[in-house]
Amino acid sequence: MLFFIIRRFVTMIPLLLGISVLVFVLMAIAPGDFLDVARTQEDIPAEYIERMEEEFALGEPWHTRYFIWLGNVVQGNLGESWIYRVPVTELLWQRIPATLVLSALSIMFALCVAIPMGVLAAIYKDSIFDRISSMFAYAALSIPEFFLALLAVMFAAQTGWFPTGGLSSVEHEFMSFWGRMADYAHHLVLPTIVLGMGSVASYMRIMRANFLDYIRSDFVTTARAKGLGEGRVMFVHVLRNAINPLVSASGFILATLLSGSILVENVMNYPGLGQLIFEALMRQDEFVVVAAVMMGCVMLMLGNLIADLLLAWSDPRIRLEKN
């Protein structure tokens, strides 16, 4: 098991190197650079811009800059954000908690809604509930997240039931501890639903399809023949088997949520990583972009690793060592 984990980490290294090269090349090909904004401000002197070009090594070809960067990374230094002049790691850490909370909540939301709905849709196949839920699933899958986010903001603005964006209200720091928690929760409801909605639909479909597969298997007949109650057959025997594909699919959740959250966070004004990455991309704040892309990558791989481990834990037929 340990060997398996170590091997997965080792294979990450060449992948990350490849991705970082790709990011540097793409950033070099992309038109303009970080100093464009300063260049169009009439009251910033030319000498200052020259000094900055020198400091950021913007005149150098991308491979020179890449190796300077790589040298620093090997020493544990991911560089400094050009916009904020603080270390990239620190900048990312400021935003990670907010995004993780949102991601974790949307995963929980998605699973809590999708699993029961998928199961019910499978048990009552072709019933009116099944039809409605699949209609809902296709609709949710085909609506882009940012659009859903816009609808949510409109809903909040119209009804006034929820805040129109952000993570906390203006009065936040003057509240009691519980008041602050409630304030956070109040702000998290809409983003969680928006971000989780797409996953709800896809998990529900996966759950339903697998459940249907297993409902027809021999062990179900055996269990029924033994005289087990229908509830026990469905929720213990069938569910236990049908949940495996969902576990492996959840490996991608972290990564897809991260990419989804870039749009949702921007529309809903949520102070997470997405906002930061979006700004860094637009301004071409190179080291932040590279770090963010690599982090997304690490999250994808970690997510897959965790999914594999969970799968091994939930399904005794799977042995990681033999893979």
């Binding site: 809590c112 809604v113 029961p116 039931w161 209200s169 203006v170 009065e171 003057f174 509240m175 519980w178 008041g179 928690m181 409630a182 304030d183 929760a185 109040h186 409801v189």
Partner: peptide, 21 residues
Amino acid sequence: LAHFLAAILLFFALASCKGDI
């Protein structure tokens, strides 16, 4: 799930009675 929703509603109720600065 119902408990979960109830918890959200509770928080929502708490949040709406926030005080002034």
